[in-house]
Amino acid sequence: MSVAAPDKLGDSLITVEHLTMRFGGLVAIDDVSFQGANREITAIIGPNGAGKTTLFNCLTGFYKPTVGRLTLHHPRKGDFLLERMEGYQIPQRAGVARTFQNIRLFPAMSVLENLIVAQHNALMRASGYSVAGLLGLRGYRQAERQAVELARFWMDRTGLTDRADIDAGNLPYGDQRRLEIARAMCTNPVLLCLDEPAAGLNPRESSDLNALLRYIRDEHSIGILLIEHDMSVVMEISDHIIVLDYGRRIAAGTPEEIRNNPDVIRAYLGENEDEPLPPEVVRDMEEER
């Protein structure tokens, strides 16, 4: 299988080649290749159990791929082979940040603290690995102030400023989702991987999220990989879509192409009774047929 055609819009940011992930006898990802570009939202869709989250776990170092090469083309630092890096180094060095399908915040810490912890590595250097910080030197106080400013920026963007000092665990669900994105952005990533960020959001929150993701893509010129079940979100904001089914890549292309792809329609309509598509998407697909 060949690597997907390079994109016209952005520069290539992440290249996945022949990625395979096996758990014992189960092949969760089977020889998947694709590219994600800078300043683009690449959606990864597919029925439940298709291997989307597993793909993210491989990209962010939580799993070591059985086979395959994952290259991140960092705009400033050069190429990183993600499959060879330790989990924590991937966000730290290569600048890949992620969110989780079931939100993982630091619940007993405040919103602001969640965002400050995300800047751990920069602050750690600034605090002279705690020595200068313990002595209360000026350089560290300066760095901390900057960290608060960055946190403040993302809180403003995600509408969390009023709740800065509330424990993250006490936030309403939608706010927690947005806080997780803000936390990921506070690590200053070049690639943001979002695992179902719109799950459980109401229509208003969902459209706010679309705006936020567009803003991140356009103004911060980073690449986004987006796993999403909500087709209205996917079709609206993604530049490129990859479709997985049973761990295999069954289609890739623009939203327009995917909408018309018979394999995709079959994968969704034929085999996914437990989680039907939103009615408007089904109608869309039916009409196209």
């Binding site: 924590y88 991937i90 007993a108 936390r183 990921a184």
Partner: peptide, 11 residues
């Protein structure tokens, strides 16, 4: 609070 989340932000 959460070791997995820690790794995801580079700690």
């Amino acid at each position: 609070e959460d070791e997995v989340a820690c790794r995801s932000i580079g700690i």
